Amino acid sequence: IQLFSRPDFLGDHFSFEDDQAALPASFRPQSCRVHGGSWILFDETNFEGDQHILSEGEFPTLTAMGCLASTVLGSLQK
């Protein structure tokens, strides 16, 4: 999965292949690309809070990911 700090796959980005119990504190994903398989994104660290399940594809905004525009993602799980 690739996470981007701005909508439309712009800004800083991080790529992950494994579960992340905590995303970098200063990084707030605003768009993402899922390459193969599914990922669960969580509103809180340690895989807690609301879950957003994404299958392979491109998600140019938080709302395209099924999140509110104000959502701050905290962790993710493959």
Results as ranks from 00 to 15, higher is better:
I1S: 03
I1M: 01
I1C: 05
I1W: 03
I1F: 07
I1V: 05
I1G: 01
Q2K: 08
Q2Y: 06
Q2P: 01
Q2T: 15
Q2F: 06
L3H: 00
L3G: 00
L3S: 04
L3V: 07
L3Y: 03
L3Q: 00
L3A: 04
L3T: 00
L3D: 02
F4C: 04
F4S: 06
F4P: 01
F4Q: 02
S5Q: 07
S5R: 01
R6L: 14
R6W: 06
R6G: 12
P7T: 09
P7W: 01
D8F: 13
D8E: 12
D8N: 14
D8C: 09
F9S: 03
F9M: 02
F9L: 04
L10W: 05
L10Y: 10
L10R: 13
L10T: 13
L10N: 13
G11A: 01
G11H: 04
G11W: 03
G11L: 05
G11N: 03
D12T: 13
D12F: 08
H13P: 00
H13S: 15
H13D: 12
F14V: 13
S15A: 10
S15K: 12
S15I: 15
S15T: 15
S15V: 14
S15N: 10
F16Q: 04
F16G: 05
F16A: 06
F16L: 04
E17P: 04
E17M: 11
E17H: 15
D18Y: 09
D18N: 13
D18C: 10
D19W: 03
D19Q: 02
D19E: 07
D19G: 04
D19N: 10
D19Y: 06
Q20M: 09
Q20N: 05
Q20S: 09
Q20R: 07
Q20D: 03
A21I: 11
A21L: 09
A22T: 13
A22W: 09
A22G: 07
A22K: 13
L23W: 07
L23D: 00
L23Q: 02
P24D: 04
P24H: 00
P24A: 04
P24S: 04
P24Y: 04
P24E: 04
A25G: 12
A25T: 11
A25N: 09
A25W: 09
A25M: 12
S26P: 07
F27N: 02
F27H: 00
R28G: 02
R28T: 14
R28V: 15
R28L: 09
R28W: 10
P29V: 14
P29K: 03
P29A: 12
P29G: 04
P29W: 02
P29N: 00
Q30V: 04
S31A: 05
C32Q: 00
C32D: 02
C32N: 02
C32S: 04
R33K: 15
R33N: 02
R33D: 01
V34M: 00
V34Q: 03
H35D: 06
H35C: 09
H35K: 14
G36N: 09
G36K: 12
G36R: 12
G37V: 03
G37W: 00
G37T: 06
G37P: 05
G37K: 00
G37N: 06
G37F: 02
G37R: 00
S38N: 09
W39R: 03
W39S: 00
W39C: 04
W39I: 00
I40F: 03
L41W: 04
L41V: 10
L41K: 00
L41C: 01
F42W: 10
F42D: 02
F42C: 06
F42T: 01
F42K: 00
F42Q: 00
F42R: 01
D43M: 07
D43E: 15
D43N: 10
E44R: 14
E44C: 11
E44S: 13
E44W: 06
T45P: 15
T45K: 14
T45G: 11
T45R: 14
T45H: 13
T45V: 14
N46I: 05
N46W: 03
N46R: 05
N46F: 07
N46V: 00
N46G: 11
N46M: 07
F47H: 01
F47Y: 11
F47K: 00
E48H: 12
E48C: 13
G49Q: 04
G49H: 02
G49W: 04
G49A: 03
G49L: 05
D50I: 09
D50M: 11
D50S: 13
D50K: 14
Q51M: 11
Q51W: 11
H52V: 13
H52M: 06
H52C: 08
H52K: 08
I53L: 13
L54H: 00
L54M: 07
L54E: 04
L54A: 06
L54Y: 01
S55G: 13
S55L: 09
S55E: 15
S55W: 06
S55K: 11
S55N: 14
S55T: 15
S55F: 09
E56S: 10
E56T: 10
G57M: 01
G57S: 04
G57R: 04
E58K: 06
E58F: 04
E58G: 06
E58V: 06
E58I: 05
E58W: 06
F59D: 05
F59A: 00
F59R: 03
F59I: 02
F59N: 08
F59K: 06
P60C: 02
P60M: 08
P60S: 08
P60T: 00
P60E: 06
P60Q: 02
P60K: 05
P60A: 04
T61K: 02
T61V: 02
T61D: 14
L62F: 06
L62A: 06
T63N: 11
T63Y: 11
A64M: 06
M65K: 08
G66K: 04
G66E: 07
G66T: 04
G66W: 01
C67A: 08
C67S: 04
C67R: 07
C67E: 01
L68T: 14
L68F: 09
L68Y: 12
L68Q: 14
L68K: 15
L68D: 15
L68E: 15
A69F: 07
A69N: 15
A69D: 15
S70T: 14
S70Q: 11
T71A: 09
T71D: 09
T71S: 10
V72G: 13
V72E: 14
V72F: 10
V72A: 14
V72H: 14
V72T: 15
V72W: 14
L73I: 15
L73G: 09
L73E: 03
G74N: 15
G74W: 02
G74V: 08
G74P: 04
S75R: 05
L76Q: 06
L76D: 04
Q77S: 10
Q77E: 04
